[in-house]
Simulated assay, not measured.
Amino acid sequence: MNPILELESARLLLRQWHDDDLPEFAALCADPQVMRYFPAPLSRLETAALIGRIRGHFAEYGFGLWALERKDTGAFIGLTGLLHVGFDAPFTPAVEIGWRLARRHWGLGFASEAAWTCLRCAFGQLGLEEVVSFTSQSNLPSQKVMQAIGMQRDLGGDFDHPRLPADHPLTPHVLYRIDRAQWLETLRG
């Protein structure tokens, strides 16, 4: 399959990563507010390594976490996309949808708009049957995005993230799902 290098929504371009995205992305990943639901903020080197892993996912699977760019200003604002879950859990193997936006772009509907565009790609171009999303129990903003794009919480699917220590406050995670039929229903909705 040819890689899906670009997607577009009304206000956003979901595109491949450019080398000059690193400074803005490193600032985003170093922001303690943005990273409060992750184990720790990332250094510039860790952020560069993350971009490398994202590019590797695209090379292997043809899709991944796209860089987000505002059409009106050309500003890099974060990432949104689809990736294979990289750990074992009762719901894996699975493809997850995720997002991370710079704080100054919060509350404008960009996360939901970009995520909706990714779901259209997942069920349309990629032909997936299901997409999952998960986050720490305390991350209510991300859960609101999951709900806004039609995902349903799988109450029986909540889990402790295997890459975090058992006593870490972010270890308990919630699981959301959406399948092709649910997505089609939201389109009719």
Rank of each mutant, 00 (worst) to 15 (best):
L5A: 14
L5H: 06
E6Q: 15
L14M: 15
L14W: 11
D19I: 10
D19T: 06
D20G: 00
D21E: 00
L22S: 01
E24D: 13
A26V: 13
A27E: 15
P32C: 11
P32I: 14
Q33I: 15
Y37N: 14
F38V: 04
P39C: 02
P41T: 11
S43T: 15
S43I: 09
R44K: 14
T47P: 00
T47I: 07
T47Q: 02
A48L: 05
G52D: 09
R53L: 15
R53D: 13
R53V: 08
G56P: 00
G56F: 00
F58D: 05
E60M: 08
Y61T: 10
Y61A: 12
W66I: 14
A67V: 12
L68W: 06
R70C: 12
R70D: 02
K71H: 01
A75W: 00
G78R: 10
G81P: 11
H84W: 07
A89H: 03
P93V: 05
P93N: 04
A94D: 04
V95K: 01
E96A: 13
E96M: 07
E96P: 03
G98C: 11
A102T: 05
G107Q: 04
G109I: 11
A111W: 09
S112K: 06
S112W: 10
W116Y: 12
C118W: 01
C121P: 01
C121E: 04
A122F: 08
F123S: 07
G124D: 10
G124A: 10
G124P: 11
Q125V: 11
Q125N: 09
E129M: 09
E129T: 11
E130T: 12
V131T: 07
S133D: 08
S133W: 07
F134H: 06
F134N: 02
S136D: 08
Q137F: 06
S138D: 12
Q143V: 06
V145E: 08
M146Y: 00
Q147L: 13
A148W: 01
I149Q: 00
G150C: 04
M151W: 04
Q152H: 09
Q152S: 10
R153E: 14
L155G: 02
G156F: 07
D160I: 00
P165W: 05
P169D: 13
T171M: 05
L175P: 03
L175F: 00
A181D: 10
A181L: 12
W183P: 02
T186I: 14
